[in-house]
Design a protein around this nucleic acid. Structure first.
Length: 829
RNA sequence: GCGAGAGUGGCGAAACUGGCAGACGCGCUGGACUUAGGAUCCAGUGGGCGAAAGCCCUUGGGGGUUCGACUCCCCCCUCUCGCACCA
């Protein structure tokens, strides 16, 4: 550790205090100025902020400060996603109440963010476990209930045995819990759902209208919604005209190739179709066998398909042929109708099953020449398909569906993979679901004037099954808002993703007491112009928030269709080959970095080391480099304070070539940095450009003499360059630049300055270096006037001493001249 | 398996719409200053040959288009991510 580092501790503390006193980052609506809403995904207050977290805040702060300087009225808030299981688990393990644990963490992390110097408007801080916050989502819950957008049903859900709660489909990854990685098991349970499927089509359609989003996130959302178009129709059971099986297919054109049909093992019709005791027993055995497999085994793709042939047969309505009927584990009850027609000729899974069970295969699409594969899923001409023969697949799909519809046998049908969002959690630390169960009136929403339904403080947390709230008598025993009689409260709490589905709206008017948010404030600020967060929420939070916003719109609360105009998915911070995380024990703490190098250095390193969307490898030597650079800047400016503050502001017409060239570097840097920040998020190259400017600045300083022998423009140019450099570097490293800015004699904050403007005149060149190639290889260089005539450049190139030997014994076939760049002489022997 | 993205020095990475590959930084080597250097400054640093000037090779591999390819097209290999019996 060196004593030669600039005094970052004092500087950082000083400016953080100044910014706070002057309320520098406080914003109010101002219709006269363009707004910019810059938002980073708010954190779960898990304990301590480490360098894995810092990246997102550094990016957000950079953009927010940049937009301030570009003249925008910037909303840049921060808050806490404060409900969640870790608080409850900490309570179980250490006996600390979740409230205490959560607020202590928040206090610590807030202090860390402040020491990092992020430009938040702290007056807007939002904490989701505050009843004044979740009150409003309870109100919305009731309105959703009224409209059928929230409902309760018994169903098979994903149960995480470790978290002791239900998970939504989005929260299961590869059959495992997204939080704790435990294997999820199915469980039949009553629970609450939000009807996100009612918005499937709109959520999908808007994926095409979010140009500011990364394509891969949109793709993930489209895949998750999983729209597929096809037809549904009935297969009657042979000999039972009153019994039929509904099937869904995306390939109605292949119906003539149907050689068997399959029911999911859990299909409810099975019990009616199967009547003999012997077969019932076989079915029970088969079901037990399937049930034994875990979710993970069952969804592994390359696993053999198990099936049980039933005695019943079904009839293909297209050709009246009776075909075998199976139960098979490759058909899932949760999708479509839980039953399929099987066409092995044109479906790979059916082909595999047919081969295993010795079933016939009929081809209904003519194979391309040389086809050697098994099932063929491509386009082609229909064959063996009755009235569909000769058509293309697309035409046949349409005609087959039409045929079903006109005969009343089926319908066109769109299916989505998306399931309704299960929001019940059998845990304590979440927002209570505001309904009661009355013996007389049944399920009744809590009356609006009784909201919030506050979480009781006194609760026994064991972590062993059942909703903890169920054991809190004072909570459970309520009053029916309809009849005034005794009623039992719902003891499930809401998924914490509900809170994060609208916090960005709450920031617009965080202390508004008459509703979720103040309409005028939300109309001014929303939507979020730039959202920044990790890719892990591609289909979780980001899909839920889009859905919830649309619900609020349809409830008449807001006009916006989409909450986030642009999204930046930043990469992970990696150390020792893994994502930096507390559980892996590979964290570099923010406190440590700040103590050793300062906040500015830590931020600079993370912004410089990789482009934002890529993963970033933590590197102890890399941060030394960032530190070295800031110290260099510090030493340079400090050493020339007197000369710089006494100098004229700019030097519009430099008097020497060297001065002109240096001034061009200054303005070229302004152009590059502005472009990198404005156009794409090229923070790393923006920093590289600033580093180059500092290199040029030092070179010019030492080359331009000093004292009496100084070049005439020296002081003015040094000042112009230094001030531009500080302004450009400001959003990356706010403390050190603010300090140097003030030491140069400025009274007003650097962040109240306009972003430096490019002087187009300074970029003008009179001469350029043109590369001369012979047959594509660089053989020489020419210094020529800008926009010199092609003929002249060609002549100079051919006459160049370095070039001539390469052309001498050969015939010049052609000369390509790219103005101001390059000449390529093409020769032949 | 399907879909998307990526493969460039010892390392992190640059390269606008096809026009000097390797900016910037790390590391390394040599030097200066120094009692000392893990501070600072200067020089060098893709590989090969060469005393040097310079020449040849080089963006995962192979082909192609072009005067010219990291960039465009085709085939292949590797890695990362997403989806994964969704009918």
């Amino acid at each position: 550790m060196s004593a030669d580092r600039y005094p970052f501790r004092e500087i950082e503390a000083k400016w953080q205090a100044v910014w706070e006193e002057t309320k520098q980052f406080r914003v109010r609506e101002d219709p006269g100025r363009p707004k910019f809403y810059c938002l980073e995904m708010f954190p779960y207050p898990s304990g301590r902020i480490h360098m894995g977290h810092v990246r997102v805040y550094a990016i957000g702060d950079l953009l927010a400060r940049f937009k301030w300087m570009r003249g925008f009225n910037v909303l840049h808030p921060m808050g806490w996603d404060a409900f969640g299981l870790p608080a409850e688990n900490a309570a179980i393990e250490h006996g600390v109440h979740p409230v205490i644990w959560t607020y202590e963490n928040i206090d610590y992390m807030r202090a860390q963010l402040k020491k990092m110097g992020i430009s938040y408007d702290w007056e807007r801080e939002v904490t989701t476990c505050d009843p004044a916050y979740y009150k409003w989502e309870q109100l919305i819950f009731i309105k959703m209930l009224e409209r059928g957008l929230a409902y309760r049903k018994r169903s098979t859900v994903n149960w995480c045995p470790s978290c002791q709660t239900v998970l939504a489909n989005e929260q299961v990854e590869d059959g495992r819990c997204w939080r704790c990685d435990s294997e999820v098991t199915p469980r039949e349970i009553d629970g609450w759902f939000f009807k996100i499927t009612a918005y499937a089509e709109e959520l999908l359609a808007w994926c095409d209208r979010l140009p500011g989003w990364p394509e891969r996130v949109l793709t993930m959302q489209r895949n998750w919604i999983g729209k597929s178009e096809g037809a549904e129709f009935d297969l009657t059971i042979d000999g039972h005209r009153d019994l039929s099986i509904r099937v869904f297919t995306t390939r109605p054109d292949t119906a003539f190739g149907m050689t068997y049909a399959v029911l999911a093992p859990e299909h409810p019709l099975v019990d009616r179709i199967v009547t003999t005791p012997a077969e019932r027993e076989a079915v029970a055995r088969f079901r037990a066998e399937v049930a034994r497999q875990s979710e993970i085994e069952r969804t592994a793709a390359d696993r053999p398909k198990r099936g049980l042939r039933l005695t019943a047969r079904v009839v293909n309505p297209f050709n009246s042929v009776a075909i075998p009927l199976f139960l098979a584990d490759y058909v899932l009850m949760g999708y479509g109708t839980g039953a399929i027609m099987a066409v092995p000729g044109e479906d790979e899974r059916d082909w595999e099953f047919a081969e295993q069970h010795g079933l016939p295969i009929i081809e209904t699409v003519r194979r391309p020449d040389g086809w050697t594969g098994k099932a063929y899923t491509g386009d082609g001409v229909k064959i063996n398909s009755g009235f569909l023969d000769g058509l293309t697949v697309a035409e046949a799909k349409r005609k087959a569906t039409e045929w079903l519809v006109t005969r009343g046998l089926g319908t066109a049908k769109v299916n989505y993979r998306l399931r309704d969002w299960g929001i019940s959690r059998q845990r304590y630390w979440g927002a209570p679901i505001p309904v009661l169960y009355c013996e007389k009136d049944g399920m009744v929403p809590e009356a609006e004037q009784n909201l919030p339904v506050a979480l009781p403080r006194d609760v026994q947390l064991s972590g062993k099954g059942g909703s903890p709230l169920a054991s809190v008598a004072s909570f459970v025993n309520g009053t029916c808002p309809r009849c005034g009689g005794p009623a039992q409260r719902e003891t499930d709490t809401m998924d914490t993703f509900v809170e994060s589905s609208w916090y960005f709206l709450r920031y617009c008017s965080p202390s508004y007491g008459s509703g979720m948010f103040e309409r005028s404030a939300a109309e001014y600020w929303m939507p979020v112009d730039q959202y920044i967060g990790g890719i892990e929420h591609a289909v979780l939070h980001l899909l839920y928030a889009r859905f919830y916003t649309k619900v609020l719109r349809d409830l008449g609360l807001t006009k916006i269709d989409e909450p986030f105009m642009a999204l930046l998915s930043q990469g992970m911070v990696i150390k020792d080959g893994a994502k930096m995380s507390k559980s892996k024990g590979n964290v570099v703490s923010d406190d440590f970095v700040r103590e050793k190098y300062g906040a500015d250095t830590g931020r600079l390193f993370e912004l410089f080391a990789a482009p934002p969307e890529k993963d970033l490898e933590w590197n102890d030597q890399g941060i030394e480099g960032a530190s070295r650079f800031l110290n260099r800047v510090w030493r340079f400016v400090s050493a020339h304070l007197e000369e710089l503050s006494a100098a004229p502001r700019t030097c519009p017409t430099p008097s020497s070539d060297a001065a002109r060239a240096f001034r061009r570097v200054i303005h070229e840097t302004i152009r590059r940095v502005t472009d990198d920040l404005e156009r794409e998020f090229h923070f790393n190259t923006a920093i590289a450009a600033i580093m180059e400017l500092v290199n040029a600045l030092q070179a010019f300083e030492s080359a331009s003499g000093n004292g009496q022998g100084a070049a005439p423009d020296r002081a003015a140019l040094l000042r112009e360059a230094t001030e531009a450099m500080l302004l450009l570097l400001g959003p990356f490293c706010p403390h050190v630049t603010e300090e140097l800015w003030s030491r140069l004699g400025h009274r007003e904050s650097l962040f109240r300055q306009r972003w430096p403007a490019v002087d187009a005149a300074a970029l003008q060149k009179t001469e350029v270096t043109v590369v001369v190639q012979v047959d594509g290889k660089v053989r020489g260089r020419l210094l020529v006037d800008v926009d010199a005539a092609d003929e002249r450049v060609q002549q100079l190139a051919l006459g160049d001493d370095k070039v001539r030997p390469w052309v001498a014994q050969r015939r010049v076939e052609k000369v390509v001249v790219v103005p101001n760049r390059l000449v390529n002489i093409v020769t032949r022997a």
